[in-house]
């Protein structure tokens, strides 16, 4: 198996996974979405809320705020030794907020949350949580915990985790008369004419829409589009709590652990039978 990174920009990565299979890519994709842990607010204790939104609505909004995640310092509450419902310093980070609108309407932002651990903070400080009218007050304490996307989408570290097959576009040069119809038909502008010959410029961008095949006036079409399902183009965009690279590494780690577990169990079973 081989990985070639095409683009890595901010939170998103695009790479080619070659000599692989859709089954492997899908396993990776599903783990990224539902099993890579990340931090999110889970419990909120309201001391005062005279705002227009009720406690549950605010708690829900707080939960959705992506938090920077430190996977080395925290463990999942289920795996923590404390076995406490409220958690301990190994499995939760505490945030407090106390805002009162005194002079006029005030927007409460994610940046107003004060976390006890400096490594945990909102990905963006500009997310509006609520607006307060004069004399309205909001005061609460929130516990952020690690969790997985399996349980709630707020713990999903990625916005996009998708792959597609590597397109394979061939032009039959014996039949093609470079009439340009397919070049104009392509919505992604992948085909170009160079010296009266149609050439494929950027096959990775192809969406396998078949417009070029359908547009060709020749019968049968001089353009042939197929795909290679052992080479996959993977698109990954993280929400920001973990970088796309961290998500990918953690996902491969989890997949490896799962595979080892299966081989171990199979070996035990095989041993008993013989």
């Amino acid at each position: 198996m081989e990985v070639k990174v095409l683009e890595a920009e901010g939170n998103s990565v695009r790479f080619i996974l070659s000599q692989s299979s859709p089954a492997f890519a899908n396993a990776l994709r599903r783990i990224m979405i539902s099993e890579v842990p990340c931090m999110a607010i889970e419990d909120v204790f309201f001391y005062e809320n005279t705002s227009t939104l009720d406690d549950e609505t605010i708690a829900h909004r707080l939960g959705l705020i992506p938090l920077t995640t430190d996977l080395d310092s925290y463990v999942l509450p289920e795996e923590c030794e404390c076995k406490s419902e409220m958690g301990c310093s190994r499995c939760r980070a505490t945030a407090t907020l106390e805002v009162e609108a005194l002079d006029g309407r005030k927007t409460v932002y994610s940046g107003d949350l004060k976390f006890d651990d400096p490594h945990i903070r909102p990905v963006s400080d500009k997310i509006p949580i609520i607006k307060l009218e004069v004399n309205q007050k909001l005061k609460f304490e929130a516990y952020a915990k690690l969790g997985t996307g399996k349980k709630h989408a707020k713990w999903q570290p990625v916005a996009v985790a998708a792959y597609k097959y590597m397109p394979n576009i061939r032009i039959n040069l014996k039949k093609c008369d470079a009439c340009r119809v397919c070049v104009d038909a392509c919505p992604k502008n992948i085909l170009q004419v160079e010296k009266d010959v149609i050439v494929v410029v950027d096959p990775v961008s192809c969406t396998l829409c078949y417009e070029c095949v359908k547009a060709c006036p020749q019968d049968p079409s001089a353009v042939d589009v197929s795909w290679d399902d052992t080479t996959l183009i993977f698109n990954l965009e993280s929400v920001g709590g973990l970088s796309a690279k961290q998500v990918l590494f953690k996902a491969t780690e989890i997949l490896k652990k799962k595979a080892e577990e299966v081989t171990k169990k199979l070996a035990v079973k095989g041993g008993k039978q013989t």
Binding site: I65, S124, D125, K126, I127, A159, V160
Partner: peptide, 8 residues
């Protein structure tokens, strides 16, 4: 739909 951050 995708869970991407847009609030900010």
């Amino acid at each position: 739909t995708c869970g991407g951050l847009i609030g900010d």
